[in-house]
Amino acid sequence: MKLQDETLKEIVESLTQWIRDEMEKIGGKKMILGISGGKDSSVVAALGVRALGRENVIGVLMPKGEQIDIDFSYDICEFLGIENVTVPIDNISKEYLKTLEKLPKSLMPEISNDTSINLSPRIRMTILYAISQSIEKSRVVHTGNLSEKWIGYTTVYGDNTGAFSPLGSFTSDEVIQIGRFLNLPEKFIVKPPADGLTGKTDEMVIGFSYDTLNKYIRTGEIDDLKIKEKIDKMYNYSRFKFTPIPIFPNDLPIKE
């Protein structure tokens, strides 16, 4: 969906104030976020600078092994003038996997591919929260967008986590438009989204384009019925990732 400049201006102004309000609600002052060098983390970091000041935004780079696009992450931090730190996770991931391999084969015959892929986002989020808890009044902020959320392309207790989500109601193409309105360099907002783990782009992994998905989200229109079926299945299957943990109801009294 193409947004008009006036609409983008209203969105950016509202997002800026919303971030300030959310931080105030939770007693936060500094924003902590993972920096990938792609559009989502770049836009959230830019909004954070606008809302809180660059001195209150800290970017954490967490490459796993050799990351060929790591320069994008360093460059956006330099462009925005935010403090940043690099925490490689390769050795941490290997130690986790070594520990899992020691489990009884009767319990877990092998480590699944899904386990291996989702381990890294969870390690990264653990690092973000560890850093945040040691920096006074800092809060971890979620950087995902609506397109990823729609199909559940996110890891529970990994990149699906954060104190609040500035981009959670915007599709990937709308995030690009917001980034352009914020005058971010094109290389950050048009970089093909990838998890940095599988060696593939997001679109290669999910099997359809974000353009197709975003049009379907906003208009309900889609030409390929097989892709529609796949999107609907991914949507329905992944709703558990975005609902509160179910709590057993009972009638015992609670202090009011």
Score class of each variant (00 low, 15 high):
Ser172Gly: 12
Gly158Asn: 01
Phe208Lys: 04
Lys191Phe: 14
Asp159Cys: 10
Lys191Pro: 02
Phe208Gly: 04
Asp173Trp: 10
Val141Asp: 00
Ile176Val: 15
Val190Glu: 12
Phe181Thr: 00
Asp159Trp: 03
Lys187Val: 08
Lys187Gln: 13
Tyr153Asp: 02
Thr155Trp: 08
Leu167Cys: 08
Gln133Cys: 11
Phe164Ala: 07
Tyr157Phe: 15
Gly144Leu: 04
Gln177Ala: 03
Asp202Phe: 05
Glu136Trp: 13
Asp173Cys: 09
Asp202Ala: 05
Glu136Gly: 09
Glu186Asn: 10
Ser147Glu: 03
Glu186Trp: 07
Val205Ser: 10
Gly162Arg: 00
Phe164Arg: 06
Ile176Tyr: 15
Val175Cys: 11
Lys200Gln: 12
Gly168Glu: 01
Gly152Phe: 14
Lys187Gly: 06
His142Phe: 13
Gly199Asn: 06
Pro193His: 08
Ile151Ser: 01
Val175Asp: 02
Ser134Phe: 07
Glu186Asp: 15
Asn160Tyr: 05
Glu186Met: 09
Gly196Ile: 01
Thr201Cys: 10
Ile178Val: 15
Lys149Pro: 00
Thr198Phe: 04
Pro193Gln: 06
Lys200Ala: 06
Thr161Arg: 00
Leu167Arg: 03
Glu186Ile: 10
Val205Met: 13
Asp173Val: 10
Glu174Pro: 07
Val141Lys: 00
Ile189Met: 08
Pro193Lys: 04
Leu184Thr: 02
Ser165Glu: 15
Glu174Leu: 08
Thr198Cys: 08
Ser134Met: 09
Gly162Tyr: 01
Ile189Leu: 11
Ile151Arg: 00
Asn160Leu: 06
Ile176Asn: 04
Ser138Asn: 11
Lys149Ala: 13
Leu182Ala: 11
Leu184Asn: 01
Thr161Trp: 00
His142Met: 15
Pro185Met: 06
Asp195Tyr: 01
Val205Gln: 14
Lys200Gly: 04
Arg180Trp: 07
Asp159Ile: 02
Gln133Tyr: 12
Val190Ala: 07
Met204Asn: 12
Leu197Trp: 03
Ile176Gly: 01
Phe164Ser: 05
Arg180Lys: 15
Tyr157Val: 08
Lys149Trp: 04
Ser134Asp: 13
Lys187Arg: 14
His142Gln: 14
Thr143Phe: 13
Ser147Asp: 03
Ile135Val: 15
Glu203Ile: 10
Gly196Tyr: 06
Met204Cys: 07
Thr161Asn: 01
Leu197Gly: 02
Pro166Met: 12
Phe208Asp: 03
Ser134Trp: 07
Thr201Ala: 11
Ile206Pro: 01
Leu146Tyr: 11
Gly168Met: 01
Pro166Phe: 09
Leu197Asn: 08
